[in-house]
Design a protein around this nucleic acid. Sequence first.
RNA 1: CGGGGCGUAGCUUAGCUUGGUAGAGCGCGUGGUUUGGGACCACGAGGUCGGAGGUUCAAAUCCUCUCGCCCCGACCA
Length: 520
Amino acid sequence: MCRLNCSAFRMANPVDLSTKTAITPRRDEDFPEWYQQVIRAAELAEPSDVRGCMVIRPWGYGIWENVQRQLDSMFRATGHRNAYFPLFIPLSYFAKEAEHVEGFAKECAVVTHTRLEVDAAGKMKPASPLTEPLVIRPTSETIIGASYAKWVQSYRDLPLLINQWANVVRWEMRPRLFLRTTEFLWQEGHTVHETEGEARAEAKLILDLYERFVRDHLAVPVFSGEKSESERFPGAVQTLSIEAMVQDRRAIQAGTSHFLGQNFARASGIQFQNRAGQQEFAWTTSWGVSARLVGTLLMAHGDDDGLVLPPRIAPTQIVILPVATKEESRPRIMEACDNLALQLRGKYFADLPLEVEVDRRDLGGGVKNWEWIKKGVPVRIEIGPRDLEKNSLVVSRRDQPVKTKGSMSIQEFVAVAPEILNSIQQNLLERAREFREVNTRKIDSKDEFYDFFTPKNSAKPEIHGGFAFAHWNGSREIEEQIKNDLKVTIRVIPLGDSEPGRCIFTGEPSARRVIWAKAY
RNA sequence: CGGGGCGUAGCUUAGCUUGGUAGAGCGCGUGGUUUGGGACCACGAGGUCGGAGGUUCAAAUCCUCUCGCCCCGACCA
């Protein structure tokens, strides 16, 4: 709710612009509402008339395109190739893997008719039922498996490493923009291997790739590991995931990679003749990240003035704002801005030319400036008549307070622009790391655990909790219990080094600490 | 799908209890004054009050039904 817009309030209390934030409410007032307001203010997306779906606007889509471009080159570099499989899955394909069906059945959209007719009342109604209904893919294991069954004959055909960029549909009860929508954009890799070891290695390779991508490009640190049985992908033998912490201290799954064993190979008939000349079911993996990453990014870095974008993912990295206050100086200032943009576009950051935009719209300077703040552009440059006289400009960084500005010569800025972007990139990652560190702790008693995850104010819960590293006896019952009591779940069981201890709930032996948190 | 709340201009909303067919702020348009800053003044456009039925001389306001949205739960990238 925006109190500042209330007329009575306004008359009694003129808005103090020195403390007003661009986004209302602030994060500490109402985090979910803040999230929605940032999406609107930054023009990332808006809800569509179709429940659960969203319109992704150019600024939001630009971020996704950068995710695509950068991830795609990482996939290519590891030998994966893109392909495209149909949106529609025959119902019969879908029914092949029992667990898988059970996992997705409740959220499937099903196409049953092929034509519309006008009925007696003049309304359009579906006609001509299909003999076999088509499921709109909630994920593509089954339909891709059908192709793979044909393509894979021999161990010489393996490994088969394919990715597709696609939309999928999972009918959602409670949608949230970017985080959980009925239709969403993602990437799904599907690979086939000769041996169990190779397939397991592939799943891990991609997990590490995701971790690197999210850290280096989105500036979000993650914990990675294996999912507990209850959180496993339907039909998978092992599900790996990366988990980020966002600013309300909740966890968000930012990417998953599954080792599917031979389950899907068996269901789809993916067999090959092995080196010994025998028929064998292949070993498969699947893995994906979705446009949820955009929401993750927002919640990880955004502040009370809107979005804050890491330079590596920002559609525009530097925006140049001409301060053309007097008509006569306007042409010279515009020229200087264009000239600067041209020079900057010849420079590189992270192996790509700088993305620079000159905002020449005829708008009030303040309005323009705030728009770009809300959109999270990493660097804002102002050039006015006085700067031009000194051949200088004014620089603002989005990772610093709005009022913080620096002046430097145009020439110098051109030289150091990539360094500034790099510094912002590093700074955001560092900040996110510190935040996560402060809100992560080892917990060794049940009482402390419950205390950690219980808000002080139960009526209107404040931001609380975080990540807890605690010992667990490995039982599903305890997980269930904790989930019921606190809405806290095991996010991930870290891979690698063990640290024997005792389950804090039962006192039973535990091989390692697992990571607990409230999750999106 | 269960429990709670809400639908009035692009956004935020006043009015509803005690019926008399709409008012504001922001945003938008035009003109002007401004300009290192989310500026100011004037004028202006924009709403059949979610939809359908009913009560009434008269409905945003009362009644019934319906649709949609939000929050809380079960499910989830």
